[in-house]
Design a protein around this nucleic acid. Sequence first.
DNA 1: TAGTGGTCTAGACCACATG
DNA 2: ATGTGGTCTAGACCACTAT
Lengths: 271, 271
Amino acid sequence: MATAPTPVTGQAFKAGRRKPAGGGRKLAPAASAPASFSPLYAQVKRLITEDLRSGRWKPGEMIPSEAQLASQHGVSQGTVRRAIDELSIENLLVRRQGRGTFVASHLSPRSQFRFLRLRRDDQAPLLPISTILDCRRAKAPIDVARQLHLRVGDSVIFVRRLLSVDGKPAVLDELWLPASRFKGLTAERLVAYRGPLYGLFESDFGTPMIRALERVRAVQASAQAAKLLGVRAACPLLLVERLSFTYHDSPVEVRKGYCVTTDLHYLNELN
Amino acid sequence: MATAPTPVTGQAFKAGRRKPAGGGRKLAPAASAPASFSPLYAQVKRLITEDLRSGRWKPGEMIPSEAQLASQHGVSQGTVRRAIDELSIENLLVRRQGRGTFVASHLSPRSQFRFLRLRRDDQAPLLPISTILDCRRAKAPIDVARQLHLRVGDSVIFVRRLLSVDGKPAVLDELWLPASRFKGLTAERLVAYRGPLYGLFESDFGTPMIRALERVRAVQASAQAAKLLGVRAACPLLLVERLSFTYHDSPVEVRKGYCVTTDLHYLNELN
DNA sequence: TAGTGGTCTAGACCACATG
DNA sequence: ATGTGGTCTAGACCACTAT
């Protein structure tokens, strides 16, 4: 079973879509079975994604070559190529010419700060220092529960931390994580860990963050936030509310970041 | 010259890259001419982009079919396809199955609010009403000049407008446009125009906006902004500074938007 | 029915990285 | 020298849109 061909080797793919020989029968009347069939490359893509989710290939590891995947799945290399192309665009995979295709990892320098849109006004690289302020179990508040697809009162892990830039507090982060998925996450572990949180999540909890939605607004600093950030109360702060997803669009993290944007800004590219 | 083949029909492309016949000569030693050669599809892409910039095909119009472009440029359809794929991803072109490939337009419903990241908290569609407050010639301030690649003091057109949602002021916009490119833009014309500003820019000034950079921060409302937006002074506002580009990455608009984010937020997708 | 983009294949060759 | 991804081709067929 180890490196054996995946369950389906070209049979299931072709069912309802291809006519393997030169026959003229129409096995896949698109009109009569709407929305039921998807292109081969999309099916391959889904199979690869499932292998990623199941942990068959872990972040940082190399996946089989295009040619191998093609023969395993009984499709042409071009079809596999397209599937991998899309997964690369979605940042699930990383292609490296001459070397192979690898599972994306928040631990690699390439995509370490993928989700960090904050920049210094002076363009210098942003090197935040993290201080863990709190980490405890809690009951999911209603809005968090809704976003994480939990029930109100379900157990979550709440984390509060401070990011400092140039030795000055810049961002106050509050995180909510489903306790079931992040069992064993403690303040000690967070403090001991060197590197980005998302690296810890993917390596120790098998949960790579793939995608996120952010809602940004301007708010007044609460008394508590002002104190922690070293600004006066009612100072305007950028509030970034993030909902992060792992494979198959499962929501697994709610994060609120309160940012002092006097020397920083949130950068976004539109196209 | 009308629909004649583009200047280069496969000769220049292949020069230094392909061996047209079965010859084994190596005309394009990649190592000896680094960074000088680009893939065929990239060259085709550049030629198409240039045709777009020159106005040969205008926003909303259909461009030639893949097969036509392929034969014109002396490459295979697959190569043209890839060029068009990338231009579609960059939102310069829009493919429509069975119909053809069209030049993207801010006037089409599909991409009307492409650059608008503001959303209502209640998810309802955002239907802003625009009120022109000011439109006059001015000298480019230093930061605007730098961003628009102008000299300080060069002539610009300054526009101020108010966007209202549900009849309540929500966004105060300030725009700077190079006067040379937007000659003849007046308050009357802005007031008379129905539809998105970017539609006017592309149809009346041959300047489609292709891409933009936004820097977002939280600021306090100035006395003037507070008055116009109907909020108390020092109310926290979301400041969105946008620099927009047309073809070939030419910067052509600086915009500052001051948003009241009590019922609105700035939405961003990360991947 | 004709024309367009969308999918898929098979095979060739190139560029890059590694042993 | 080998194996990987990257480019390019030629041709087949499908799906959608319009006439």
